[in-house]
């Protein structure tokens, strides 16, 4: 690692001021599961590393206010997976959180960090897209909120501007029955980076939200309002074609060592159908 200064701000304003001052020479430290590797390999050589874990409002917390569940920036995957409110309202997010890395990684990796790193394979992106999450951002101009769909830009890229940092991720609690499920494709059972990440959500008004990642520069969200996919009485065979259309943005890289493009495209359909079935099953359960 290069020599850097270590900063431990105690307020968001202090962190923002440091970010403004140092720009690209600053790196934020939350869980560090990606940053410490980048530092060690000297992929990044910052002048200052800003540790966010001593800012009271960013310390791990999951709270509900006005039907919005808010997950603070240093909340880790283990916290999310163990939280009863998240389990009750956002099961697909739990399914994504529990497959991130290993037990050791989940004890350290944060949800905010997962989306800030901009990995196309980030497990939590698809459920956050399906649940219509909002990213809370603090910056020189104050606080702003942006839909996660606008926040995620491409590999390693987000819509964060200079001096900005994520303080929380908010998920609106569905006010009407909503069933959702997350699934992924890996080479082996257990700890692995996904070749496909996919989440599907359905409601009782015929809306289907489907998000998929790891098959293009970012995770994509598709919305189907025809009612066909969300209709439990329509057979899965009849859903193959409309489901296929939702994958029009998939463009898996031929350079990846994890899986070939053909295999990924074929498996997208399989995983899509599976997640849809599970989501519909959960929707039915919600209604009884």
């Amino acid at each position: 690692m290069n020599r850097f200064q270590y900063a431990r701000p105690e307020t968001v304003a202090e962190a923002v001021a440091l970010l403004e001052e140092y720009g690209d020479d600053a790196r934020l430290l939350a869980g560090g599961t990606d940053l410490v590797i980048e530092l060690r390999n000297r992929w990044v050589e910052p002048k200052v590393v800003i540790d966010l874990k001593h800012i009271p409002e960013l310390t791990p917390s999951i709270t509900v206010r006005d039907d919005v569940l808010s997950i603070s920036a240093s909340t880790v995957m283990t916290d999310i997976a163990e939280d009863e409110l998240v389990q009750r309202h956002f099961p697909a997010l739990v399914e994504a959180a529990v497959v991130v890395g290993s037990v050791q990684i989940r004890a350290r990796a944060t949800l905010a960090g997962n989306i800030c790193n901009g990995s196309p394979a980030a497990d939590t992106s698809p459920p956050l897209l399906v649940y219509d999450a909002v990213v809370v951002i603090a910056g020189p101009e104050g606080t702003r909120r942006t839909p996660v769909d606008d926040f995620i830009v491409g590999p390693g890229k987000t819509s964060l501007g200079r001096g900005e940092l994520v303080t929380a991720v908010e998920l609106p609690i569905p006010q009407r029955p909503f069933g959702a499920a997350y699934t992924r494709l890996t080479r082996r059972r257990g700890t692995d980076l996904a070749s496909i990440t996919l989440c599907c959500g359905v409601d009782t008004d015929g809306h289907t939200r489907l998000a998929y990642g790891s098959v293009g520069p970012r995770a994509f969200l598709e919305i189907d309002d025809t009612g066909t996919l969300a209709d439990p009485s329509v057979s899965i065979e009849e859903k193959v074609a409309p489901l296929d259309q939702l994958f029009h943005r998939a463009s898996p890289s031929p350079k990846s060592l994890r899986a070939s493009p053909d295999y990924r495209l074929a498996m997208l359909r399989v995983l899509g159908a599976r997640a849809l079935e599970t989501a519909l099953g959960r929707l039915t359960k919600e209604q009884v």
């Binding site: 430290l29 560090g32 599961t33 590797i37 037990v103 990684i105 004890a107 350290r108």
Partner: peptide
């Protein structure tokens, strides 16, 4: 490199000592 920190197992290679 696993150690237990405040009850949870973590990879000590992925943490700065100051943490």
């Amino acid at each position: 490199c696993t150690v237990i920190i405040d009850g949870r197992p973590m990879n000590s290679c992925l943490m700065l000592a100051v943490e």
